[in-house]
Design a binder for these strands. Structure first.
Lengths: 350, 350
DNA sequence: ATCGGTTGGTTAACCGATTAAGGCGTGAAG
DNA sequence: CTTCACGCCTTAATCGGTTAACCAACCGAT
């Protein structure tokens, strides 16, 4: 394959406002003002400048603009995931899609970095902020006593935390009421007649895991359900399968299981079928997050669905408000909605 | 919820090289040279400067640096996907993970934008390049006669195309031999005894779809297999299910189906089971791309696996070479490897 | 004693945009 | 007739770093 794919950047001088100024016969400042919609330029001049800029294919040099104290027009997101796990989480791509939508409508861009742990994530924020590469940040995967929260507070970097206010310190939170969703689900299962339910959760350290854990225990107590001890996983199919096997082989087998994401739920479904259990006749399953995945397996999974795209969009919008200095108090998104499908039914008669 | 989550950026003046210079008692230039490892600074001075910089928590202002003609230390990636489809593709998150790894090791960051179509993607590249926000770009979802290729060529933006050289023009391609993978799969199915095979493909416009289409037809002819007409989908579970149903209900039902991604394969598996077909006894399925998803369903799917993370890493590395002006000829990655699992077996006896 | 080269530094100019401050007509108000 | 305000535009300074050009020691070799 004899590819000649060399490229060379021609020394093509990009047009600057000075070039435009010279052609139009005004000063740089007038050009700057005209192009930014600032007052102090007549409509005639403004039109002429716009025309010349258009003709020259002028693009603002954001470096120069940033240097002059203006905004960087970008926000940062450091995703703390072992790279191998990224693909398994439809959640993040959807979230990013939502964030991106709002940002690009505001001509903001998203600086994304995938890092191995929170410490390196913090480094990324620090570097971006120090370099004035970003005007704000979005924090995800909030943990209990998350060291990043005080660090970002101290840095003074406008930040939106995707996570419950209880863990976001003085940073602005955007969250949804996971506890309510857990309650709703358990009420539904109780109404179907289930008495013993299990829960296969995500990583222990995460704030939302803890919140769901507590809500699960509390709601079970309220409803008089037997709650099996929650099993924590790393969200992967393997651990989901293992945890499900453990629950189903225990002497106190549950008649329903609530999962913390969809991949573990699908894995659990497979395990149940392997063990000769019919879903939903012998066992009911509920997945958290309603990706296409949950709808494509048989039976389709009853799921706690939420509009992740909108969730990301709200976070981005809140961050833009924060950056613009508009008053912001945090945003509580809609709680996940229970979407019953084929994986839940009344438990088998005793 | 009475949140007081206001933040204010304290007018905390970040330290500049001028501050360091004053403290150490040298000129700005010496500081700049010292910090960049340029010659012309004694080791003693260099150490002193480094110490002060460290103590002050100095971070380079990339805007100023970029303004002075240096690199932006970032590359751009515009992902052209309807937002709703993002989550369904583990491929991209893995790819981004691989790209990111290499970039961050080189202290480069990734500017990411999710756009609705290629035209807006091109706009993003144009803006980034014009603003000198990026030094290079990565192009994905290469289409036949992709308008972005000549546009990027003309812009002189160093670009790596993730896709076959046949469509990358003078831009640098990074690709894998999909045709070989198709051949390998069909040889395997033929060896198992299959005579009639179907293929459920991705979007028609994409270069790699066309390449796989051709390879499929050619290999079937070589091996004396009956190839059913390829059905194209948009990679979603719904279309995958619909296409599978069509294939399975046709008078010339295939005994094996090759899918272009894993979500359609999983959907196909469900459809087969719904129709009372046992996989792999009555029907063999092969998925393209080996995400955790393929391993979590029952039976686990035979898949064409490839190291997507490495794929992304190669692309990023190639791009960095290109940016640095090192000679680059494109990179052919390893072809996808057939990983037999439980979804393939000999066809039912006639 | 002088020349040339290296070492370790200096000052000045510049990148491209923005903000601050000021000038100069013109029309209206006092 | 002055004064003030305004609209429109200009010049100057600035952001923080890089590059270019130059300079002063000091070395050894001629």
């Amino acid at each position: 394959m004899e590819q000649v794919s060399q490229q060379q950047s021609p020394p093509a001088k990009r047009p600057t406002i000075a070039d435009i100024a010279k052609i139009v016969g005004v000063s740089k400042v007038s050009v700057s003002n005209a192009l930014n919609g600032q007052p102090g330029v007549s409509d005639a001049t403004r039109a002429k400048i716009a025309a010349v800029a258009e003709e020259l294919g002028f693009v603002r040099n954001s470096a120069a603009r940033a240097l002059s104290g203006a905004k960087a027009a970008a926000v940062g997101l450091a995703l703390c995931r072992p790279a191998r796990m990224l693909g398994t989480e439809p959640f993040f791509m959807e979230l990013i899609g939502g964030i991106e939508k709002v940002l690009s409508d505001a001509s903001y861009s998203l600086a994304l970095q995938v890092v191995s742990d929170h410490e390196r994530g913090l480094e990324a924020y620090r570097r971006w902020w120090g370099e004035r590469h970003i005007d704000g940040a979005i924090l995800v995967d909030l943990r209990r006593d998350d060291a990043r929260v005080p660090a970002l507070e101290e840095m003074g970097l406008p930040t939106v935390v995707i996570g419950h206010p209880s863990g976001s310190g003085r940073l602005t939170p955007v969250w949804s009421d996971d506890a309510a969703a857990v309650r709703e689900t358990l009420e539904y299962l109780a109404a179907l007649g289930h008495r013993r339910v299990g829960r296969i959760a995500g990583l222990t350290g995460l704030v939302h895991t803890a919140i769901r854990d507590e809500a699960f225990t509390a709601a079970c107590a309220d409803l008089g359900l037997d709650a099996l001890p929650t099993v924590h996983t790393d969200y992967t199919g393997e651990e989901g399968a293992r945890a499900t096997r453990r629950l189903l082989l225990s002497p106190t087998r549950p008649t329903a299981i609530l999962y913390d994401n969809d991949i573990t739920a699908v894995a659990g479904l497979s395990v149940a079928q392997e063990l000769g259990l019919s879903v939903p006749r012998d066992l009911s399953l509920v997945a958290w997050d309603d990706s296409p995945l949950a709808q494509v397996v048989r039976p389709p999974l009853t799921a706690l669905s939420r509009d992740i795209h909108a969730y990301g969009a709200h976070a981005a919008r809140t961050l833009l408000d924060l950056i613009a200095g508009r008053p912001v108090t945090g945003y509580e998104d809609q709680a996940p909605q229970l979407t019953p499908r084929g994986s839940t039914a009344a438990p088998p008669a005793r």
